[in-house]
């Protein structure tokens, strides 16, 4: 089974991924400026653009959710215990010894068990927390007076603190994510796949294999298996 170019990431998927990446990066930059961590655009512009980017991101999330539901891609994030331990051990030990990836990547199962777990938490916990607190921040109103209506909350503190905590988690994820994409077949193979959509995969087995893969065809590929 020699590796072959497989179309893994669809057009919308890549569009969604990169737009979301840029938006989150921009939101982190403007958000932490609003938080007072540094000065970049100036508070006024930071607030203005942070709000615009937030709305764009939410529209994108709606489209992405629709795409995931209609294409059944949401199943990619269903968590599994299979190979979870092996995957953790790979990152802690195997990767330094040139051991093969314990999980085989296929079109129907693009994510390893650790990714499934982390991405699911991102989608069900961190992003909802940041989005919901962000929406509250956006529509936040003091007890309605002077003809201004909307949500009545007694203070920004809880909203702001939760939003900030979520932002820290997102940035932490971003750092780890950017690093971990270098652990593919080659340093840039994952990056290339997310840009072009194509990646060299070994086969098209639907489910992750729980038993070690068959012996590789050549020693060269044994040291650089698909992840």
């Amino acid at each position: 089974m020699s590796p072959r170019e497989v179309y893994v990431y669809k057009g919308f998927e890549r569009f969604w991924h990169w737009t979301q990446a840029l938006l989150i990066l921009f939101l982190a930059l403007t958000g932490f400026e609003i938080h007072g961590s540094f000065s970049f655009l100036g508070f006024e512009q930071a607030v203005r653009y942070h709000r615009v980017a937030a709305i764009v991101l939410m529209v994108l999330i709606v489209f992405a959710a629709f795409w995931h539901l209609t294409t059944d891609e949401w199943r990619q994030y269903l968590p599994t215990l299979t190979n979870l331990r092996a995957q953790a051990e790979y990152y802690l030990v195997g990767v330094f010894r040139g051991a093969p990836h314990p999980t085989r990547k296929t079109v129907l199962s693009k994510l390893n068990p650790l990714q499934k777990l982390v991405y699911l938490q991102l989608k069900l916990l961190v992003i909802p927390v940041v989005v919901v607190s962000g929406v509250l921040y956006l529509v936040y109103r003091y007890p309605a007076r002077g003809g201004m209506t909307g949500l009545s909350v007694d203070g920004l503190e809880t909203i702001a603190v939760v939003h900030t905590a979520g932002a820290f988690l997102l940035v932490a994820f971003l750092i780890a994510h950017v690093y971990l994409i270098t652990t593919g077949t080659t340093l840039t193979s994952n990056l290339r796949a997310m840009i072009t959509g194509y990646e060299e995969l070994h086969d098209d087995v639907a489910a992750p294999v729980s038993t070690p893969p068959p012996a590789p065809a050549s020693p060269a590929t044994a040291n650089a298996p698909a992840r």
Binding site: I34, L156, E157, A160, V161, T164, A165, A172
Partner: peptide
Amino acid sequence: VYLPGRDRNSTVDALGALAL
């Protein structure tokens, strides 16, 4: 009043910085 840009929760900020 919590004033964005002026105020922060020092615990969350410390934990966040630690995480990063």
